[in-house]
Amino acid sequence: MAIETAQLHHLAHLARLDLPVAEEQRLAQDLNALLGLVAQLQDAAVDALTPMAHPHDVAASLRPDRVDEIDRSSELERIAPLMQGGLFLVPKVIE
């Protein structure tokens, strides 16, 4: 199924990724070409197989439930684009 411009806009919205109009056609072409490539997955005889999400069929190891993180807020503040009073600043959400 080919991706049209409207669907590309929907994907870009879901991905929170603004697309310049000049890039749209090329990106749609590339995505459609890739979908053509991955279409071969449909012919594989895999209906009976359990999907494999991870290389090892073992449970992730757990660590003790205790606080061991140190307070790095001042370091994190240095790399934040905009911060004030220990809070990350974003444009106003509620008028």
Partner: peptide
């Protein structure tokens, strides 16, 4: 390109056809 591809294959209606299918092929 990869973010948009990933968003597509995980999006509602396509997950089973692409992502789940790819995980079965991975097996």
């Amino acid at each position: 390109r990869r973010i948009l591809t990933g968003t597509y294959v995980l999006s509602s209606g396509y997950y089973d056809a692409y992502y789940r299918r790819a995980q079965q092929v991975r097996r």
